[in-house]
C-alpha cells in the first residue's frame, strides 16, 4: 500500500474513533447537566479551540467579511445536529445513532447531488448506485426493527 494512503487511512480511522468518543462525551454532558446547558458548553469549547488556533495562525483579521449569510448557517444547523445526537445517544445508544445518521446523510447528499441543490455539482442518480442505497436502507430498517 502507498505510504500516504496508509497514513491518510489511519487518520480517517482516528477521526471516526474521535467522533464516537465525542458523541459519547456530549451525551454524558447532556445527561449530567441538561440538554440546553450542554449545547452552550459544547459550542463554547469548540469556539475557544477555533479562536486559539486563529490567534496562533495570526488569522484574526476580517473573519466574517465577504461571505453571504446563508453560507454561515451551517453552524446554526450544527446546534440541532448536536441536540439530536445527544437525545438519540441517551435513548438508543451510540451504535444506532451513528449508523442511522450516516444513512440519513448519504441519502440526503445523494438527493442534493441528483437535483444540484445548494451549490452541489449536479450528478443524476445512476442505475448502478441504486443497490447501494437499497443496502443502506435495509441496514437502517434492520437496526430500527431488530435493534
Amino acid at each position: 500500500m502507498n505510504k500516504n494512503l496508509a497514513k491518510n487511512t489511519a487518520l480517517a480511522l482516528m477521526s471516526g474513533i474521535m467522533i464516537a468518543i465525542m458523541v459519547t462525551a456530549n451525551g454524558m454532558l447532556a445527561e449530567s447537566t441538561s440538554y440546553w446547558i450542554s449545547l452552550i458548553i459544547i459550542h463554547f469549547a469548540g469556539l475557544a479551540t477555533a479562536g486559539i488556533v486563529l490567534i496562533v495562525r495570526k488569522e484574526t483579521r476580517d473573519i466574517f467579511g465577504g461571505i453571504h449569510f446563508v453560507y454561515m448557517l451551517g453552524g446554526a444547523l450544527g446546534v440541532f445536529t448536536i441536540l439530536l445526537n445527544n437525545l438519540c445517544v441517551n435513548n438508543i445508544g451510540v451504535t444506532m445513532t451513528l449508523g442511522l445518521a450516516l444513512v440519513g446523510q448519504i441519502i440526503a447528499s445523494g438527493i442534493a447531488e441528483h437535483f444540484g441543490w445548494l451549490g452541489v455539482h449536479r450528478k443524476k442518480l445512476s442505475f448502478g448506485k441504486i443497490p447501494a442505497y437499497l443496502l443502506m436502507a435495509a441496514g437502517a430498517a434492520v437496526m430500527i426493527v431488530w435493534g
Partner: peptide, 24 residues
C-alpha cells in the same frame, strides 16, 4: 422509533451543513 427518526434527521442535517460549509 421516534429516536431512530431523529437520528436519520441528524444525518440529513449533517449533509446540509457539509454543503454550506464547503462554500464557507
Amino acid at each position: 422509533m421516534l429516536y431512530s427518526f431523529l437520528a436519520l434527521l441528524s444525518g440529513v442535517n449533517v449533509a446540509v451543513s457539509i454543503m454550506l460549509n464547503a462554500r464557507l
